[in-house]
Design a protein around this nucleic acid. Structure first.
Lengths: 338, 338
DNA sequence: CTGTTAGCGCATTCAG
DNA sequence: CTGAATGCGCTAACAG
């Protein structure tokens, strides 16, 4: 009467066989859809399973099969861009693997996160946007096939699926230059994945257009908060740029917020460009022009790589996806005269 | 030489014992930190484990122990509010359980999500913000202790941890009324958890203040996108309200966006209030006045309930947390005259 | 303190 | 199609 006191234990295969009036092997065959049972038996077993509430024990299964059928995914819960990738990962099912998620949260780093995944004997690990040093990545990849998503790294044994950050940022910078902007500020992403490449790309592209003197890099971050703070500093000190390129869309949203709070118009006074094409880019006060990373495709490729590595069908390599410019309303011609 | 071809299989306890020159039982004792081994042996075994890269197989462990030590968590990846709760869940460790995450994404519903969790024999399931019909919840709770977070439901066997939505929305509505607002619109959350209670609370509170005629409920949603669309409709048709209460902070952010795009000032022309006190509330263009749900506490309580239910230490019940008003800048006195 | 033994639930032989 | 037997890697008695 206690509501949900589970009736003893979960039923086992033996009990299922009893209930169905057949041998355990037959019951097993039916439960995993293997050949070797008549349709009549199949129905009888399935009905019995339904009736007694039988549910295969994955632990026993995978132990016996000697493969877990699991791909582990470590990601930052609080990062919307990661959430998009995780959605994509689930959307790309059909390889016979299940996904098991490990969340990285403040105080719970990569190592802590993947430990349980390894203990469950995941056959591959997909690590999203981690800044772990190469040496550590290498060590992990020695224990399990490792697919690193959204970060560039050159380490034997580590598979990489990423967007061309350099090319993407070049697109962004040249878009602004093409609109006539010269005084352009770049809001840096610090230690976050891709930040170094994008920063370098910004500087190089500015230099290539003879605008090195106008290229200003300010330290920022990957959150709205940091976008706001960085922009406040930017407005306080020195000459105001006519365009700001941000590390990602969240930071760009912060830039937008601070500019408007300061009474400036976007894009009339200042143009803003982001990176990622995250969901928030579309619903920002001024819809953001940004560099689109195709998370669906990245996820699909990452999952394929993980499954392939698990089956030893190929060796670790690098897949670089091409980003593209998505023009919305946050960028416009550089203001003339002043 | 292939980089990361895992050297055969993972080492087993037997191999560890061999490497350490002791019996498997001793090795086992050491690995799980059980009493019954000398410090010298302990060190010898730990060193050997490190050397051969031994890592206990959780599947075998939990199978043998006959308890998985797992709490399953089902949540919507794309929902920032859920992400906050998940962070809180991890932060509340120390009950001897590990967390295993199941992500709900479009096309992957609750049932699909918890199936793997059940197959792994999680000892309890924490389900965040699901709108599953009561009958289904009951069925799940018959297979595993179930803690429902952030939704009200009265079902035997289903444990509930939620915020007082009714009281929270009353706080919001009375805050606006207290500021002199009379024409107040409520942007409804449709089918989402808590929506019904908040909607009813809005109507009741308006009625209690004799403002039924001014209470306007418009259909909205729980995203920025829907907040924008609903506000656009709101502005097109009928008299403009002086205040808008939204189902949650994301929708409220959309409201803000649309109002400002329409050339209105917040809070001078229109006040806006949200619900949740999600992270975005602080960085919104106009920092949002909102009803704070303490996700850290909710998560802590939810995890305690889950662990307690798993150990049959108490029966399913309902824990209701008290929300509070967080005043920021998006609400102000009703505009006078007009 | 240490070693031996018997399963946990299931998949997979193999001989009927 | 069936039933019995074996063992995946580990823990938990129990006996030395």
């Amino acid at each position: 009467m206690a509501g949900s006191r589970r009736s003893r234990q979960s039923p086992t295969l033996v009990e299922l066989a009893e209930a169905a009036g057949c041998s355990t092997s037959l019951a097993s065959i039916v439960m995993r859809g293997a050949p070797g049972a008549s349709d009549a038996t199949r129905k009888r077993v399935m009905d019995a399973a339904e009736r007694i509430g039988y549910r295969p024990d994955e632990r026993a299964r995978s132990l016996r099969r000697n493969n877990s059928g699991l791909i582990g995914v470590a990601y930052h819960v609080a990062e919307p861009f990661h959430a998009d990738l995780v959605e994509g990962l689930y959307g790309a099912e059909g390889d016979g693997f299940d996904l098991v998620l490990g969340a990285m949260v403040p105080g719970r780093d990569v190592e802590k996160t993947i430990e349980p995944l390894l203990r469950q004997r995941c056959e591959a690990i997909i690590l999203i946007g981690s800044m772990l040093p190469v040496a550590r990545l290498r060590r992990i990849s020695e224990e399990s096939p490792l697919v690193l998503v959204a970060r560039q790294v050159r380490a034997t044994g580590v598979d990489v699926v990423r967007t061309d950050d350099r090319g993407g940022q070049r697109l962004a910078t040249e878009h602004l230059i093409g609109l006539g902007h010269r005084a352009i500020a770049y809001l840096d992403g610090g230690q976050h994945p891709g930040a170094a490449a994008r920063r370098r790309s910004f500087r190089d592209t500015m230099a290539a257009h003879g605008l090195s003197d106008h290229a200003r890099v300010v330290s920022g971050g990957n959150t709205e908060e940091e976008g706001i703070r960085a922009t406040r500093r930017l407005l306080e000190e020195g000459e105001r740029p006519t365009a700001i390129a941000a590390f990602n869309d969240r930071a760009a949203t912060g830039v937008l917020t601070m500019l408007i709070r300061a009474g400036l118009r976007v894009p009339e006074d200042v143009s803003v460009i982001g990176f990622d094409d995250a969901r928030i880019a579309r619903t920002a006060l001024t819809p953001l022009t940004t560099i689109r990373q195709d998370t669906t495709l990245m996820a699909k490729v990452a999952r394929e790589r993980a499954a392939g590595l698990a089956h030893q069908r190929f060796v670790a390599g690098e897949q670089v996806l091409v980003p593209e410019l998505t023009e919305r309303e946050s960028t416009g011609p550089a203001p003339t005269g002043r």
